[in-house]
Nucleic acid binder design. Structure first.
Lengths: 145, 145
DNA sequence: ACCTGTTGCAACCTTTGCTGTTACGACTAA
DNA sequence: TTAGTCGTAACAGCAAAGGTTGCAACAGGT
């Protein structure tokens, strides 16, 4: 499957910023987050831009600029992040319309539509059960050697 | 997300073959299924080949060749089909290893791994609740005009 | 023994989406 | 005015999905 890492990187960034703010800093830069996630600052800015559009973040420009959270980590769920950065359905329909003269070709899309919607609703429910606070707790619980 | 239509096309093919066999035919050809799904026979043969590897189908060659089910539609679930044609995780980790010297970079992958596994387990459970018999019933229940 | 219809499979192309990178204007604190 | 950071466009590289063509392998009918 064309699985991507957008949810992973976004969760990483949010956990990083949350921890950083807890340590007394006001804002975090895309450069700092990119270093931790081992990627390019522009990738981070693009993702955080989508989170800002969803109301989860705000950014300041100019000298001493950077990113900050608009809510506590405990009130942000993986569902909020998922919907912000990973839109679109889990399963795609046919690329070309099936043969509408065939009984199966005619009925398959409505049938699968209903089934897929139920499954995606369950997925959203699961994502909504995990907060970024939970994620950060698990992150800090990783054993160090 | 890079959603693909493999599960959709495979379910379409299975429902088509199941109905066709119920009408007294022994085998179905990739040509017939491709016509119903409005795609190329080779695409169908590739997908059905993966279902055969999973033990859900068998194929005959030569004149009068084609595809047939090895089980009743009622004993095939969407999970069987999903695992046969759509392997790999739902969410990807970072492409490059995060900074292991950073607390978040160090703990993020184990943390997300555990969370993702739970979510995928729930997804599999949901897929397992739907049989191809259910799918075919819904297909035939589509209103005709 | 040949002909015919179908699968099995390799090779290639196009499209799409994600990721990474460079570049540069916009903005703001000092 | 300067310096540091965001905002965003543009482009390249890569991978996966889907479509297409071509052909060998196979098996039933004649």
């Amino acid at each position: 499957m064309g699985a991507n890492s957008r949810l992973t990187i976004a969760a990483h960034a949010l956990a990083w910023i949350g921890l950083y703010q807890r340590q007394g800093h006001e804002v975090a830069t895309s450069e700092q987050i990119a270093t931790s996630a081992n990627t390019n600052p522009v990738v981070i800015r693009r993702l955080l831009g989508e989170l800002r559009r969803a109301g989860l973040m705000e950014s300041r420009r100019g000298v001493g600029a950077g990113w900050s959270l608009t809510r506590e980590l405990g009130s942000i769920t993986l569902l909020d992040v998922y919907e912000a950065v990973d839109p679109g359905p889990l399963f795609a329909m046919h690329r070309a319309l099936p043969d509408q003269g065939c009984v199966v070709g005619y009925g398959i899309q409505p049938a699968l539509q209903g089934i897929y919607e139920g499954i995606e609703e369950t997925l959203r429910h699961e994502l909504a059960r995990v907060t970024l606070e939970n994620v950060l707790r698990d992150v800090l619980a990783a054993p160090r050697y």
